[in-house]
Design a protein around this nucleic acid. Structure first.
Lengths: 158, 158
DNA sequence: CACAATTAAATTGTACGCAAGTGAATTTTG
DNA sequence: CAAAATTCACTTGCGTACAATTTAATTGTG
């Protein structure tokens, strides 16, 4: 069971395999989620990242761009054009903060606010896309959360 | 054991919330993985999706574009330009199959083959970055695999 | 064999995702 | 208070993702 004489580290072969499968599993599942949500979101004209922004606004009200980025782990290079589209679709407003004109405050229009109810209905109607138990979902969420935390801390070594 | 009058359907509500959280956890962790890989992959001049393609080729040898797409769950709209870049970087070759000229067979150049040796370093670094036990990684991989399977089947309802 | 249906890859158009750079506003320092 | 450093959002450029279309080759059918 212990390592061979030739190599001190016996594990690598299997670890590489598992590790590869885990990172790919995350990658592929993210795409699968986006695809699963797509037919639902198409009805209200949102993409999945746009939906995430709307979720943040529904929950927390008006926010500066930076805070939205912190919530979703996205930078302004991603958010600026995305928010511009949401604004063009009449779902949000963007106004410069009078107190600090570097900031842009994002808020919901009545239309954007109203969409919350609509989405809720649709999501409930569609129901359990995941097909997992509540316990499994919570377990995965927590594991992924820890994993993400670990990965985030790794970036400093370069 | 039926619900009280105040909160008629407590479970669905909770389930919906969990699904949203799980969905975002997968989304954000996928980005975290890509970022964690980036400084390492930068050294060999690969992006993360390009690295996945190379993994498939290292494991399975020369393959038509379609098969690579099946392995990674990507279509030709994504793969065609990606493969073109790998070819321009001298890592792969693309030749039309003489038996069936609709197909393009992708194979590794000596340079691409040689790069396989460097993945050892890459894998080890990321494995450490993940900071999980082998058991945890295996557990998550399996859960995500099942989840992905369920999501794939959900798309037909639209 | 002709011709419709199918298949594989590439292309087009839209939308992320992120690095790097710009410019304006604010904060920090001397 | 003025100069330097920092912060915030925007923009540019590159590389995915994916739907929809195009082109070429193969298969299926009469």
């Amino acid at each position: 069971m212990k390592a061979q004489t030739t190599k001190t580290m016996e594990i690598p072969q299997e670890e590489k395999r598992l590790e590869k499968q885990l990172c790919f599993a995350v990658y592929a599942t993210a795409h699968a989620f986006t695809r699963a949500y797509k037919p639902i979101l198409d009805r209200v004209g949102l993409t999945y990242p746009q939906y995430l922004v709307m979720l943040v606004l529904w929950e927390r009200g008006e926010l500066p761009v930076k805070t939205i980025g912190e919530q979703l782990d996205l930078d302004s290079g991603t958010l600026s054009p995305l928010l511009k589209r949401l604004e063009q679709n009449g779902l949000i407003k963007r106004i410069r903060d009078l107190r600090d004109e570097r900031q842009v405050i994002v808020s919901l229009t009545p239309e954007g606010q109203a969409m919350k109810g609509e989405i809720d209905t649709i999501m409930t109607a569609i129901g359990q896309a995941a097909g997992c138990t509540l316990q499994e979902m919570a377990e995965m969420r927590d594991m992924l959360h820890r994993l993400r935390g670990n990965l985030g801390r790794a970036g400093t070594g370069g």
